[in-house]
Structure formats: C-alpha cells, structure tokens
Design a protein around this nucleic acid. Structure first.
Lengths: 213, 213
DNA sequence: TAGATTGTTAATCGATTAACAATC
DNA sequence: TAGATTGTTAATCGATTAACAATC
C-alpha cells in the first residue's frame, strides 16, 4: 500500500464531520456527487480519497452513510480511547480541561500539570493540577498516550522534551512554535496563524477595493 | 499582479514567527538557504514566496531580518488595529478573552455576548458580557471589524449570520462546522480536526509497527 | 574583479480533475 | 437489461524544486 498523502489525511476529519451530520439527519445513502456539492469538493477527488483506503461504496448505488462514517472513524483512530494530560493550566489549558466534546470521541483528560504554586492542588472540572515532578509517575501509572502543551511559548520546547522523556508518544501543541521531534508524533495548532491569515484576507479585500476605484 | 496562491499565504505566518524569533535573537541578516534550514523548507520556495510580493532581498547578500519581518507584517495586515467581539462566552470564549498575546499584534477584544442570563452582566479580564440584543449597537459604536464565534456547534451558523447582519466584515470561527459566507471573510479553526489528525498519526505509527513484525 | 546570493525562468513532481470501463 | 455510480486509469493543472543569469 503506497503512502497516503498529507492532503488526503487533512481532509479526513472534514469527511467525518459531514458524514456525522448526515447520519444525525437520518440520511442513509449518498453519492460522491451529492457529497461533493455539500462539501464543496470535486466528486472525483472524493472517490480518489476513499480509494486510498480501499473503496467503501457500491457501484451504481453510492455510499452508505453509516458504513462510510464508521470506516473513516476507524481510519482516524477514533474508535480507540486516549488518555491525555495537559501541561500548563493557564487560560487555554483550563478551557481544554473543561471542554467535553473531546471525551465524546474518546479523548480523556486524566490530569494536569503546572509550575505555579497557586495552581497546583486545585482542580478544574474534576481534573486535578499536579506539580511537574509527578508527571513521570502519573504517565506510567495511567497509561497516558497524549500530552497537550498549553505553556507559554518559552517553555514549550522543554515541555515537549519532558513529555517525550516520560514516554508520551504524541503531543498536541498549542504554544506558538513549531515543535518537531524524532520519536514523538506532534501536531502543532498555531491559533495565531489562523488569525493572521484572516487578517491577510481582510487587507487583501481592501487592496482589491482600492484597485477597483 | 497575479493572485497569490493559498499555499503561499498559509506559509506567511510561519515566516513571520521565525523572523520575529531571529529579530529577538539579534540576528541582522539571513540568506534564503539559512532560513530554509531553520524552517525546514526549500530555499527556492522561500525566494519564490517572497517574490510573490516583490523581492525583499539584496543579491549577493541575503535579507535583512528586520526589513523582511516588517514587510511580512505589512502583508499580513499586522500593522493595523482590529476591534473584536466574542460571541459565546463558554470555556473557549473566556480563554480567548483572557489571552493577551493577540493584543500584542493589534487584535483587541472590546466586548462579549452570550445568551445566558448567568453570564450577561459579568466580565472576564475587563471584557464585559452583554446580551445578544445589544450586539448591533455595540458593533456600530465601536467600529468592530472582527467577530469571534465560540458558541456551541448548533448556534454557530445563525451567529455568523447575525454578525454579518451587524456589519462585521470578518469572522474567526471556533465552532466545529465550516462556515462559508458571501460577503464576509471567514477563517474556520477546527480544533478537533487537528486532534483527529494526531489520532490518525498515532494509529498510522501502530499500523507500520504491525507490518514490520 | 571574484564570490555570493538573489530574482526568475525552466523542469519536475505531485495533486486534482476528467474520462470511462467495471459492476451493482 | 438499462441506468446509475463507483473504482481506476489517464490528462491536466498547479506547486515545488532546480538551474542559472543578474547583480550587489
């Protein structure tokens, strides 16, 4: 099986979202061309994408929404359970601890860590905040496989190293730097990047308006 | 001037981040090949990207970090001031209201709105929470040009419409749906998408491990 | 002038789209 | 069987990379 391209992988969550919506609406089957209209993609592309993982449709008929959704859920690994910890319980860390949408897809926040003496000992939505020294023990005892970095920028790199040393295999990074590691899978969120792109588009709009005048 | 491709635009914030870091470190000049090593891109690509906006370098020498950073800051529109409101003051809304990194780049949260009687009247980090009915007046009086949607999924679409009706020209959407509008610029964040991609990669890793055995 | 590195054109590569045979 | 729509191969398009002339 040849490697699936990054472009395809990044479309999978979008498929999953739309199929989950169709399922909630009670839609039983859908063709690639109907789905393409709904999602704003090309129908060929949709069929190509699905066929990276072995086709899930029936010729002359289309795709069963429930089947297709289940397959993509499997591919994304959303049928498994993940145990997560949050490092850095500032605003974003606390928001993520309180956000229960993730638990619905199998991501459970079991604990949090912070350097601040004020925060350690407290708990947010049942997630207790522990001192950094207890991280390694906690990770081992609770089979933690996901570390969420919500520290300020300057501590993010060392936090990633620490998580990796503790044996955490995957990192979801909210600090505004690119973390890249040898043996650990990292997904960098870069909230501000998306804000800056929005800003670009606002100004692009204005530049076009200027040109027209 | 021919249209700049989306791929280029999405790299601009990354350039900006790395150049800001170099500036903080006191680096005065950099060549495309040095920058390519630091950022993990191809040097040709970097030069191509910059030349979409008119080259900023000196032949035989390289680029002045300060100049280049300033140019990209301009292109991204980060030298302007933006007035923002947040709609939906749950966990994420409150975290964004408290997050002061954005103010440093010119994005100011002037107010927040929510349907909840419990939240209206309170304030978070100096941002007061108002009832939805006051949105239009507030937007007009305060020259609001950015709306941040942090409502639950099911209210996101109507909130976008409401913001657009109030005259807000750009929307930063944190709800897990794709908002697309005619006359309003939208950037969809999709936090969970990035989590799902991380999940895919964890399982990809395991699939590869299985194959090797 | 010689050396270095940009700006830009040309070549390559990969992703998207079109076309159509396979088949339900 | 006829109609529909997939799965898959082929064509196109655009983005990335390489090459090199321009020039500081």
């Amino acid at each position: 099986m040849k490697k699936v391209s990054d472009a395809v992988i990044r479309r999978l969550p979008k498929y999953y979202r739309h199929l989950a919506e169709l399922e909630r609406e009670g839609v039983e089957k859908i063709s690639s061309s109907e789905l393409s209209k709904k999602m704003g993609l090309n129908a060929s592309q949709i069929r190509q994408d699905f066929n990276c993982f072995g086709g899930f449709g029936q010729q002359g008929f289309g795709y069963y929404v429930k089947v297709l959704k289940g397959e993509i859920q499997s591919i994304l690994g959303l049928k498994n359970r993940y145990n997560a910890i949050i490092v850095g319980m500032g605003n974003i860390g606390q928001a993520l601890a309180s956000y229960d949408n993730f638990a619905r897809e199998g991501f459970f926040v079991l604990g949090a860590f912070d350097v601040s003496k004020d925060l350690v000992g407290r708990s947010v939505k049942g997630v207790s905040i522990m001192p950094m020294e207890q991280m390694k023990g906690f990770v081992e005892q609770n089979d933690v496989n996901l570390g969420i970095i919500c520290t300020p920028e300057q501590y993010a790199a060392q936090t990633a190293q620490m998580l990796s040393d503790c044996g955490v295999k995957a990192i979801w990074n909210f600090a505004p730097i690119d973390i890249q590691m040898e043996s650990t899978i990292v997904e960098n969120v870069h909230l501000s990047d998306s804000l800056y792109i929005l800003s670009y588009r606002i100004n692009e709009q204005m530049r076009l308006d200027d040109t027209k005048e």
